[in-house]
Design a protein around this nucleic acid. Structure first.
Lengths: 158, 158
DNA sequence: ATAGTTTTTGGATATAATTGCAAAAAATAT
DNA sequence: ATATTTTTTGCAATTATATCCAAAAACTAT
């Protein structure tokens, strides 16, 4: 499975800092810093909504048409970002996956199964428990992801 | 590919009970009870490992060749089972999805990124917090999923 | 049991995601 | 700077997953 090495953890971060983290991650794993990878990272950073690989690809094609970035590269880079903990993906069953930078600050997700909206939240207590549980089981945690599915307030009032 | 699963707190329900739940769910939603749906449920029930749609399909074809169950039906039924909370899927990035019956008792997952093994666990405190958080946010929770990624004990000692 | 209605099915088709490969770009060595 | 090595890229091919549709099966009402 994944064999990437990472060493920084995720806090709210300026793009410059993020980029520098990304670069050192690449170097550490003998990967190359390419203009496509940068553009993908930057576009994700500048988007405040969760993007699908497809929509991210379209955004990039429109903004940087001269690059002719292929969809395969978008998929590959998103996987890379996810494996290294820089981005996170949310599963939407039939509707595919959506990505976001996980670099802001760690948080979990409430997903409305009616309208697809995503609400983020952080709960220290849960984070704590997770740490404790993994320790008890002799597991060395590197990452986690949690989603709660249900119906949001708006959709309940319809 | 590794596959061992450890169950803690495994309150397995009887197949008869599960089947009856499934039937009433179908009726409630004006869906029909078909032999294909039963075979898929039963095969999932009888497997103690997490199955991909593809491997589930192969198992069924081998055991019930006269049914000529199509892969599309397997996918459709798995989605149905997941939506209704009877089964859960775990994402494995490039390696696709794996399904299990969620009917035993709710649990979360520790996934080893080294060997791919899955360990299940339940933590009441986390379950509690989840409930509380969703209530506070006016959300009506129907389901949730949590995965912790890291390195398992075995793989650490290599 | 039979006929009428509704839903599901398998197969084909369409879309999403991944992978192989030769050419191109990036890093390294000279 | 240029040549050599390593990795990435885009495209095409493949595999995974979802959807369309006509025929078949399940249910309902007689």
């Amino acid at each position: 499975m994944s064999n990437l090495t990472t060493n920084f953890n995720n806090k709210t971060i300026k793009y410059k800092q993020l980029l520098s983290n990304f670069k050192s991650l690449l170097k550490k794993n003998s990967l190359k810093f390419t203009v496509q990878r940068e553009v993908i990272l930057k576009t994700l950073y500048n988007s405040d909504i969760h993007l699908t690989p497809e929509s991210l690809h379209q955004l990039i094609q429109k903004k940087y048409p001269e690059l002719k970035t292929g969809i395969a590269t978008v998929y590959r880079t998103l996987s890379l970002l996810e494996e290294s903990g820089i981005a996170t993906s949310l599963s939407f069953g039939a509707q595919g996956k959506k990505y976001e930078l996980g670099a802001k600050k760690h948080h979990d997700h409430l997903i409305c199964t009616e309208c697809g909206s995503i609400t983020e939240f952080v709960d220290e207590e849960i984070e704590h428990r997770q740490q404790k549980i993994t320790e008890e089981l002799g597991f060395k945690m590197s990452d986690h992801s949690m989603q709660i599915y249900g119906i949001c307030k708006k959709c309940q009032n319809k």
